[in-house]
Write a protein that binds this DNA or RNA. Structure first.
Lengths: 144, 144
DNA sequence: CCTAATTCGGACAAATTTGTCCTATTAAGT
DNA sequence: ACTTAATAGGACAAATTTGTCCGAATTAGG
């Protein structure tokens, strides 16, 4: 569904959000351990999220990553997915047909449209805050 | 959503089905041209479909690929997708969390389950025959 | 039997995604 | 100023997916 990079990105952002709600800034090392992802690769992804102003990165000693409380409530999953995977989830025909669109639909066009609209709705309606609720209880859920 | 291999597979099977309904056996070369896919790569995919008894392959001169009429009506898209992509569409958590399941759901677990169930239903309810109807009019739809 | 047309299958190649390593830069604390 | 701990970023490496090439096997027709 998503790329691995995107999965790591969502998990990392969720973990950062959880800790930011407790006013804890977290380091790359801690993030990678907690979400069970390769650290150096996760660093690249966090750079992307940082450039998109999805997470705040602070360099230097006692630096790390954090997300403002306002942002945690405001930011939807769709922003993260879009920053990392672009529009590849929504774009194009499910069968890879360039000429398929609403005017010249392939036989499964409408069904695909429905399913992808559902997915899009889900991503646009789920905030980072929602991702953190329910996770407070069992942190281990973020481990792959 | 699907791998390229899977997209080519669906398009190839659809084209073969269309021609088989007109009692025409088709060659790899023709298939690749009509669905606009790389021939050698498409050959590999057809081998897979052949081994899964999704298409019939006939070797030698005047050989090619065909699908029995009964099969065209009976065969669902899910079979093709499963033969090529396995269960990767349905399997696992949308966020790549190994420990996420109905007992220990991640925050978006239920939403993902719904969406993937819809996709699965669609694939299991769409026959190759349905893929061919509507395509008789505009063959070009199969071109990418 | 020979030839031509075709799929099969293995080895290889290119492209993309995933992942690693190292150095530069930044900032806090002493 | 120096040291230490951290992110940034570029170059590289591994793995996976996508795609190519070529010889072997098969079969119809002359």
């Amino acid at each position: 569904m998503f790329s691995k990079a995107c999965e790591y990105g969502i998990r990392a952002a969720t973990y950062i959000a959880m800790q930011s709600l407790n006013h804890r800034r977290v380091s790359l090392k801690e993030i990678a351990e907690k979400i069970d992802s390769p650290a150096a690769f996760t660093a690249k992804i966090l750079q992307i999220l940082s450039k998109h102003n999805i997470v705040d990165s602070i360099k230097g000693a006692y630096g790390g990553f954090e997300i403002s409380t306002a942002q945690i409530y405001r930011l939807k999953l769709s922003k993260i997915v879009n920053a990392i995977d672009g529009d590849r989830i929504y774009a194009g025909c499910g069968l890879g047909l360039k000429q398929c669109n609403a005017d010249k639909p392939c036989p499964v066009h409408d069904k695909f449209v429905d399913i992808r609209n559902d997915l899009q709705q889900m991503l646009e309606n789920t905030s980072l805050y929602e991702m953190t609720t329910g996770l407070e209880i069992g942190l281990t859920y973020l481990k792959r």
